[in-house]
Every structure is written in structure tokens, then in C-alpha cells.
Design a binder for these strands. Structure first.
Length: 298
DNA sequence: AAAAGTACCTGCGCGC
DNA sequence: TGCGCGCAGGTACTTT
């Protein structure tokens, strides 16, 4: 569910409260939200307790909070995850799986609540390793991102808003893909941050059909699509992301309002804002694709 | 090696 | 009212 703009909204919210906060204790009510946790629940608790959260960094849809130069708390929201920052007196949030109790730099006690309906998201503690190119690993304006990345995130490509994102190189790779253009846009190993909403939105803006083979699209058009997608992501970040229901919230439990700007996703049956033809939804690759049958020809 | 398919979960709204 | 089905913003693993 959460794509780059939603995750960035969460990152910024966490950074506001948690930089240099110290972990006091942890409560795990559902260990299924701890992923790849070879050290066990107790190992997770032991390592995190007493540690200081140094920064909040994001690459694509992944977040991590360095605990030192070598280890980090990594989080992913999956389809339905939220990370809420609450004061201790705040009412319980349904589907809270993990609570990390912290004391902020200013000495205020806060709770980081990891909430997740479907359990596709999760937290883990992981090693940090140098990035292959030696450049900053992700986005973290409050504390310049170090050039170390969690090993479990290393295979994720730089996202479209990353200052080191190489649009030219990615566009060349896209022309060589023998897959549908939408599948390529969703390939986090090639370019990260785009999910189903922003893929459909970008393709609508670029007037491309989701199932058009990427190899049949020129490099120039791929570059245009990349720039369109980056702009959509930037605008969505500015509006706090897209919220349709209770599933996506920022760290304060508030909805974003980019849904007002959507042209294709979730607009099935409504007139295309360019030509008036009803937007169509088709099942595709185990998900839905929304597009204008007139503006977006295969 | 690349590309496609499947598994992992819970809960909601819909039609019957 | 109840039940089964389809649907939901993602990723990792397996298969072809």
C-alpha cells in the first residue's frame, strides 16, 4: 500500500521526533511482525533496548534507523503497515504488533507503534554495509545519509527522488526489458519507490498502455516517463501521500490528500480527465490496472 | 539469466 | 443475517 510518498511522509514524521531518541523498552504482541529475525524475539529486544536512534533514512519504500555505524533497525510497511508516534496517554491503536518505548532527546517519553493489518510489513535489525558506489545510501536530510545500507535493502535500486538516481542509465536498461512497461516500473531492482497507484498515474500522464512491451518504447520516451513519475512522486510527497481508507496514515494518524489529484487509479467508470472516455480497470499480474482505453493504446 | 507465477496475511464490501 | 468471493497501496521465494 504505502509507496514512496507515503513512506517519505512517515520518514519525515519519525525524524521530527526520534533523532537521538533512546530506546527504553519494547513490547512485542505479534512476533510475526519481526522479519528475518534469526536472533529471536529476545535477541531483538536485547539489542534494541538502550540503543540510540541516530537518524531516519529511506530508500524507495524501505526505512532504516541506524543504531550505530554497523547496525540499523529496518522497517517496511508492506501493504497495510503504519508507524505511529504516540504519547503514552494516547488511546491504544488497533492491530498494534510492536511498541518501541523511547525517550526523545528533549526527555519526552513517546511510543513508536508498529501497526499492521496484513502482516506483510515488518521490522528487523540488520548489518549496515558500504554501498557499492560509496555514495549516500538513501534519503535523510536531517542527518546526511551515510554510505552504508542494510544488507537486506542493498538489492533495492535507488529511487526516483534519490540525488544519485541515474535516469539516463535506467532508461537504457528499460529499453532492454522484455516485459510490460508497468511491470518494469514496479521492478524495485531497477528503480524503486513506485507501486500500483503511482504506476497507473504515471502511465496515464505519459499516455502509455500498461501492457506495452518496454522494449518497444524509445529511450527518449522512457526518460520522459521517468521524469513524469518523479514529478508525480514529488507532488504526492508534498500532499502527504495518498489515503483511501484507514490503512494509510502518517505518524500522527492523519490521512494524506493526494487522492484528490488521482487521474486513473481507483477511477474506474469515471470520465478520463483528458478525453471523457470512462476509465477502465483490468486484472493484470495479480492486481488491478486503471487506464483510459482511448488515451492509452497498447 | 530473466521473466512470470505463487505464497505470505487480515478484513472489507459485495452479491446471493 | 450469513457466507463465499474478490479485492486491497508489496515483497520474497520458486518455477519456467
Amino acid at each position: 500500500m504505502p509507496e514512496l510518498p507515503e513512506v517519505e511522509t512517515v520518514r519525515a514524521g519519525l525524524a521530527q521526533h526520534l533523532v537521538r531518541a533512546k530506546v527504553s523498552s519494547i513490547a512485542i504482541s505479534d512476533a510475526r511482525s519481526l522479519k528475518r529475525n534469526v536472533a529471536g524475539v529476545q535477541g531483538f529486544v536485547d539489542e534494541l533496548t538502550g540503543s540510540t536512534l541516530q537518524a531516519v533514512v529511506r530508500r524507495g519504500k524501505f526505512l532504516w534507523l541506524p543504531l550505530s555505524g554497523e547496525r540499523a533497525l529496518v522497517g517496511h510497511l508492506g501493504m497495510s503497515g503504519q508507524i505511529l508516534v504516540r504519547t503514552p496517554d494516547f488511546a491504544p491503536d488497533p492491530q498494534t504488533r510492536v511498541v518501541i518505548y523511547v525517550e526523545t532527546e528533549a526527555g519526552e517519553p513517546l511510543e513508536i507503534r508498529f501497526v499492521d493489518q496484513r502482516l506483510f510489513g515488518g521490522l528487523m535489525i540488520d548489518d549496515l554495509a558500504p554501498t557499492p558506489d560509496g555514495l549516500g545510501a538513501g534519503f535523510s536530510p536531517e542527518a546526511e545519509a551515510a554510505s552504508v545500507i542494510p544488507t537486506t535493502v542493498a538489492h533495492i535500486a535507488r529511487d526516483l527522488l534519490d540525488p544519485h538516481f541515474d535516469a539516463e542509465a535506467v532508461a537504457v536498461k528499460m529499453t532492454k526489458k522484455n516485459s510490460a512497461i508497468k511491470r518494469v516500473l514496479l521492478d524495485q531492482n531497477l528503480l524503486s519507490g513506485i507501486g500500483n497507484i503511482y504506476a497507473d498515474e504515471s502511465l496515464w500522464l505519459a499516455k502509455l498502455h500498461y501492457d506495452k512491451p518496454a522494449s518497444s518504447i524509445s529511450k527518449k520516451k522512457h526518460l520522459e516517463l521517468i521524469e513524469i513519475a518523479a514529478e508525480v512522486l514529488r507532488k504526492a510527497v508534498a500532499k502527504g501521500g495518498t489515503s483511501f481508507d484507514e490503512q494509510y496514515k502518517n505518524v500522527n494518524g492523519e490521512s494524506g490528500y493526494f487522492s484528490q489529484s488521482l487521474n486513473a487509479y481507483g477511477m474506474t467508470g469515471l470520465p478520463c480527465k483528458r478525453c471523457g472516455m470512462p476509465i477502465k480497470r483490468e486484472a493484470w499480474a495479480n492486481r488491478g490496472s486503471h487506464f483510459c482505453p482511448k488515451c492509452q493504446k497498447r
